[in-house]
Design a protein around this nucleic acid. Structure first.
Lengths: 189, 189
DNA sequence: ATCCGTTCTTGATAAATGTCAAGGGATGCA
DNA sequence: TGCATCCCTTGACATTTATCAAGAACGGAT
């Protein structure tokens, strides 16, 4: 809870009322690895803050899983498309390790926006921040060769290679597990 | 100007003070086709609202232009990465037709956020909205075959094919002009 | 200790797409 | 009118990556 509040506070001071509401509304849950936080067909109802653990988002393409992102602890976790557009998701959210999660419902978040003007500033800055990360990911996927994308993933998420199986990394990089395996063999990395 | 204000008003009512400031600060310019609004190396200083015309964003990859997006009239136009992260851009913004543009500097936008709490709500909702569009684009690029991406581009931007040369469309779809040409020959579209 | 499933690697082959090159057709300008 | 340029198409070929298949290495469960 403190980590979550600290992220908000770093953007804009929290009024007493807002902090109290956040503490009152936020729900804590601890879930084991390989738990689904969201499944296709349902509308994303909760905004999660990942205190500890690791989460990924993925889609199915021709029956196979394509990992769209990984999110480490200290970050917010949602399906952007479903949570913001209020449409049924095509995306899965899944824990990759035991996770400690704080969450608010979509309705609660909207209520906080109405009740506390300052919360709009926090929401705006957070949205901008994750938008930038998302654009950078999309750009990398588009502009860099697979080997370089792998190198950056290693740089940006050291330890991820130890935590998740290779085929998840491969699908995130936009290549098959076989291609990634050969890539590593060539570069001895 | 009215189109710009209408988009804002549809999200949150504008106080007299905010509307007056927007009218006072916003700068109008009319520029011919093929004008650069942003070039690599400089930090994006302005947030544009495109009243009429057509704009694209593109990068250079191995010396060749890769179009990352097109934006039609009635929309906001910025380099997300440069404007939000305040880093020198790698992206070009370029008009594809004569454009009528209203714009605010980054400093002006930040000032409005500080001065008018309601503006944070507008900024938040707009950021969410474009974030969703960006995610959907990235997802399409990743999950759909090239032919389907082309079909959707035709659907989402009817008229674009008449306005811009084929190789711009191709690079936006993530394929070469030759491949797109063959694709159209096969499907007779 | 053994069995079983998962992960990772490697090889052979196929499919998709890129690259290079050439040519036709439209457009604008001298 | 003629020329230059740009746009689009098509062909031949190279390259990249996927697909299919097999097997080795590892760990957990019984």
């Amino acid at each position: 809870m403190e980590a979550f509040l600290a992220v908000c506070r770093a953007i804009h001071p929290l009024s007493e009322g807002l902090e109290a509401e956040l503490r009152r509304l936020a729900r804590l849950e601890t879930v084991p690895a390989r738990t689904a936080l969201l499944e296709p067909g349902s509308v994303a109802q909760r905004l999660y803050f990942l205190e500890t653990g690791l989460v990924r988002g993925f889609y199915l393409k021709d029956g196979k899983e394509v990992t769209s992102w990984f999110m480490p602890e200290g970050h917010f976790v949602i399906s952007i498309l479903s949570f913001f557009s209020r449409q049924p998701s095509h995306e899965y959210l899944q824990t990759l390790a035991e996770c400690r999660l704080w969450s608010l419902t979509h309705a609660q978040v909207q209520g906080l926006y109405r009740q506390f003007a300052e919360f709009n500033c926090i929401g705006r800055v957070l949205t901008e921040r994750y938008y930038v990360l998302s654009e950078q990911r999309a750009l990398d996927l588009r502009m860099l060769p697979a080997a370089e994308r792998y190198a950056r993933l290693l740089r940006d998420f050291p330890g991820l290679v130890q935590q998740v199986p290779l085929h998840l990394l491969a699908s995130h990089l936009g290549i098959t597990a076989e291609t990634l395996s050969r890539l590593r063999a060539r570069r001895a990395g």
